[in-house]
Simulated assay, not measured.
Amino acid sequence: MSVVKKTNAGYTVQLSIGSGKNRIRQNKTFVTRREANEWLTQQSAILGGSKALLYQRKMTVMSFYDLWVANKKKGLAKNTLKSYSATKNRLSPYLSRIKVSTLTHQQLQGVFNMLSKRYSHETLRKDLSHIRSMLRYAMRISVVTAKVNPANDVVITGNDDSYYKNVDDKVLPLSEFNVIKEYLIRFAIKKNDWHTRNMLGLSIAISTGLRGGEILALCYKDIDFSECILTVNHSWDGELVAPKTKASHRVVPIPDWLVDKIKYWADLNNLSLDSDMQVMTRKDGSVGSVGSLTSAFKKLQKKLGFSPQYSLHNLRHTIASHLLNKGVNIVTVSRLLGHSSVRITESYYLGLVSEDKVAERRKVLELL
């Protein structure tokens, strides 16, 4: 039986579907009864009772992938849907006979080892991201009962020069990076302004190298304003979720100018600095998307006279590559980015640093 109860914190949904070992229980609190009822209706439709859950657990990985895409389909751009479809075409030969409920990390790693012989690093990185998100959804509705997402820490192997051949497409020139950073430092904060909110998100990105989802999930209480540090506790995937890997839980230093901007933004909007509200929360209470931040970033590039070719994630690439080129220890860079191992940092970024430093880096990695 599922009910909505009024509590001191708001309206709490107590969702209960199925029975015995197949019973699903979820509790979630909302500000309004309407939000609570909408969520209850949505979850009941998704889970569809214990029989539907048992059926979903028997589905193959790719059949469940189709279900996941269908649930996300509304409102997605055509290019995004094409990307999901391309992932399905590449992975279907390997995952069409494996049950989603029994999929293991070792099986996924084996699949991506084979795919690495045929496809580019960038292509497989997107495929892995799609599978990871699908499995996160499967865990959320109890189709997958593993405590750790099987896609976490899967490494895309192989010597893929195609991933590195267009460095200019991945890393902003230092001159452009500095101009953009200077603009964000000087940008004037305005109350309840959507443009200001986007500029604040870009300021966090260019100062920390956080992933887009981590920026959207950042709450005021996650920031130590006196010590000038922030703690990454969550990521954003339509709701607050665990970060990508265990190593993604990390403490990141932030510059004084960014601390001052966030404090001023909170003060203008009468928000407490120890609030659990997300910094990127909109006036209507919703949270934006990584796509909206990327769009704002491209508009800013165009405004400053640059070709708007770089995405929000390219800021992360840029920070990493410039730090490595300046001689910052690769272990430090790996921890700053929240990678689960130094090997992952090496696989992503050694191809983006100057050639005269690559051999030196590889010698270091052999000893780590």
Rank of each mutant, 00 (worst) to 15 (best):
V290M: 06
D153P: 01
I189M: 08
P253Y: 06
L218E: 05
V241Q: 15
K221H: 06
F177D: 01
H234W: 12
N166K: 15
N233V: 07
I206G: 03
E239V: 13
K170P: 02
L240A: 10
D160K: 12
P253L: 04
L273V: 11
S175T: 10
S292T: 04
G213T: 11
D256T: 15
F177L: 06
N159Q: 13
I262A: 09
H249D: 02
T231L: 10
V241E: 14
V232P: 07
I223F: 03
Y164Q: 06
P173H: 09
T196W: 07
I254C: 08
A247Y: 09
S292Y: 00
D237I: 12
V259C: 13
K261R: 14
L240P: 08
Y164H: 11
D237P: 01
Y163S: 11
L240R: 13
M199C: 11
D160Q: 13
K181M: 08
D237N: 13
D222W: 08
L210P: 02
E214Q: 04
I189T: 10
D276N: 14
A151V: 00
A242I: 07
P253E: 08
W265D: 12
S248C: 04
G288E: 01
V279P: 13
E227A: 15
K181T: 14
K170Q: 14
N149Y: 05
L258V: 12
M280T: 06
N178I: 05
G212N: 02
A188F: 03
I180V: 12
I262M: 12
S286I: 00
L174F: 04
Y264I: 05
L271E: 06
V279K: 13
V252C: 06
D168K: 14
A188D: 07
M280F: 00
D284E: 05
L216C: 05
R197A: 04
S226D: 15
P150Q: 08
T231P: 01
D256R: 15
V232S: 08
T281R: 01
W194N: 09
S272D: 15
T245N: 13
I262K: 12
H195Q: 12
Y163P: 01
D153T: 09
D267P: 00
